[in-house]
């Protein structure tokens, strides 16, 4: 009935030192549709591929605005993500209330990391079945963090999680050195291109299935509040991607040969 004797709960190690329930939770992340995040010196960008359960249903939300300076992109159980994002919203409001400042990114990411970790050490609890990409700005500039069901968190320059995300990661790794020097719009285009890489043959990015979120520092060095692009708002971004791809088609080819 069971795959083995050590996956009945999240508090028992296997003799090999693994906690299977946590690993299964990480599998749940891989079931979710892909989200990509990338950051440079001025902006942090989230890009997500939305899925609908069936042709007639609405699309599942992939990017949740937590506060004006921060948003999360989700892959995995959306309901678990809502619990986490509600908690983050509370913490963020509380920081604004008590100190009058937006909560530092590393602080809130550590907090959700700690919460997730307790779920892996108490009997009767279940790990969160969701991975998050947290993008935002604070006094130290733009950031991107990855959160895993194990409670592990990392600050990233670029990251992709979810189904077929390996393709996106490969793109991000190959183009990593370009991100820092590029503009806000170019960074979004890179994000969309990474997302496009993950699509299967019969799929393409449309205004219905694409979500883009941007937060960063404006030209005056002040915070540029988080903005979500979905539906009609996403059309110009997709057009920009198409234009960049058609213009750089030749370049792209030669680059492939190089590597």
């Amino acid at each position: 009935m069971f795959r083995n004797n050590y996956d009945n709960d999240a508090v028992t190690f296997s003799p090999q030192g693994r906690i299977f329930q946590v690993e299964y939770a990480q599998e749940a992340v891989k079931q979710g549709s892909v989200v990509v995040g990338l950051v440079n010196k001025t902006h942090s960008v989230l890009v997500g591929l939305k899925r609908n359960a069936e042709e007639l249903s609405s699309y599942q939300k992939k990017i949740i605005e937590v506060d004006s300076h921060m948003a999360v992109a989700i892959a995995g159980l959306a309901s678990d993500a809502r619990v986490l994002s509600n908690f983050m919203k509370q913490q963020s409001l509380s920081s604004k209330m008590t100190y009058g400042r937006p909560i530092p990114l590393d602080r809130i990411v550590t907090q959700i990391g700690d919460r997730a970790q307790t779920n892996t050490q108490h009997y009767g609890k279940r790990p969160y079945g969701v991975g998050l990409l947290v993008a935002g700005v604070d006094a130290a500039g733009p950031h991107l963090f990855e959160f895993q069901p194990s409670g592990l968190t990392h600050e990233m320059q670029a990251c992709a999680i979810g189904a077929r995300s390996q393709m996106a990661r490969t793109y991000l790794e190959r183009n990593l050195d370009k991100f820092d020097g590029c503009s806000r719009d170019e960074l979004v285009t890179h994000g969309l291109r990474a997302l496009k890489e993950t699509l299967s043959q019969d799929k393409e990015l449309t205004m219905e299935n694409t979500s883009v979120g941007v937060v960063g520092l404006g030209t005056n060095g002040k915070m540029e509040a988080f903005k979500l692009y979905e539906g009609q708002d996403a059309v110009p971004l997709l057009e920009a991607l198409e234009q960049a791809d058609s213009a750089g088609a030749g370049e792209g080819e030669s680059m492939e040969v190089d590597s």
Partner: peptide
Amino acid sequence: HGNMLNAKN
């Protein structure tokens, strides 16, 4: 991380 509370905070 450069997130020190300032006098206003």
